[in-house]
């Protein structure tokens, strides 16, 4: 198999390097790619949409339909992980493990069916040795709110600086994943349950698609934000800018929700127990 691999990649690699010979030189401002479509975007994105960040303007307005399906791709990935991994069957265990929080002693209790999962003094765990690290918990607990604020900044400031819905959503999800890693999956499920994560992602994609449908209702083409000026009480250009913010919020919600959902499913192989 290794020899086949080497032969394949040598053949196709030489073909591919040969194929680059006709390319325009790297960084040439006069190459067709840099002179055909992009000039229009650079010159007109400000008068068309009043968004200084050209990437955001193209992403959420000129090619907004792509972006809607990009959000759908990540939503489909969340659904796919759920469909493949989620395990609703609960194995009946003979015993379950609890940790006494003040002392850190692990208790093994038989016939524990009618005991609550967590009380103030006891915490349910799944393996005999689960480290309890005060330093990580405290430190990540301190960091998480700042990361979340930064995520909100990245979403809201996508018009003026690099950033936007995806990046902000991923950062928001990452903050929560940090919490889930340093605490445990059970505790994070109490804050954002599986249902909440799903609803968050559904609503996020729904905001995007709903904005598009709203444009249909106002008589223009799908996702043509200009027609939203009637309900936003502005001119069409600033309506586009506002609608882009709206859409970015939807994308952020969807991505954050899906990231959390993906983490839940993959880290616990769908069992939703203690996790990593």
């Amino acid at each position: 198999m290794k020899i086949i691999g080497i032969i394949t990649i040598l053949l196709s690699g030489s073909i591919m390097i040969y194929s680059t010979l006709d390319f325009p030189e790297w960084g040439d401002p006069l190459s067709p790619a840099n002179t055909h479509l992009s000039v229009y975007y650079i010159e007109n994105s400000m008068p068309d949409t009043s968004v200084p960040n050209i990437v955001t303007a193209i992403l959420a307005d000129y090619r907004s339909y792509d972006t809607m399906f990009e959000t759908t791709v990540i939503f489909a990935a969340g659904l796919a992980c759920f469909l493949l991994l989620r395990n609703f069957r609960k194995k009946k265990k003979e015993y379950s493990l609890y940790r006494h929080i003040p002392t850190g002693v692990t208790l093994k209790i038989k016939n524990s069916a009618d005991l609550a999962d967590d009380t103030k003094l006891f915490q349910r765990i799944d393996s005999t040795w689960v480290p309890f690290d005060l330093v990580t918990r405290t430190a990540s607990g301190l960091i998480v709110p700042f990361i979340q604020i930064f995520a909100l900044y990245v979403i809201a400031h996508g018009h003026h600086s690099p950033g936007g819905g995806f990046q902000g959503g991923v950062i928001f999800g990452a903050a929560f994943i940090l919490f889930a890693i340093s605490y445990s999956l059970r505790e994070s499920l109490k804050i954002i349950s599986e249902k909440t994560a799903v609803i968050l992602s559904c609503v996020g994609v729904m905001i995007y698609a709903g904005t598009g449908l709203l444009c249909l209702l106002f008589g223009s083409n799908f996702l043509n934000y200009g027609s939203l000026a009637q309900i936003l009480f502005t001119d069409p250009v600033s309506a586009r800018s506002l609608a882009i913010l709206f859409v970015e919020i939807g994308v952020g919600l969807a991505v954050a929700g899906v990231m959390i959902w993906l983490y839940y499913n993959i880290s616990s192989s769908g069992k939703y127990n203690q996790g990593l």
Partner: peptide, 21 residues
């Protein structure tokens, strides 16, 4: 052409998941 790629990936990802079950 690029929109086609994105939709192709939606099809593929949902296809992988459906086949995996």
């Amino acid at each position: 052409l690029f929109n086609l790629y994105v939709l192709l990936e939606i099809t593929s990802i949902s296809g992988y998941a459906l086949i995996g079950t």
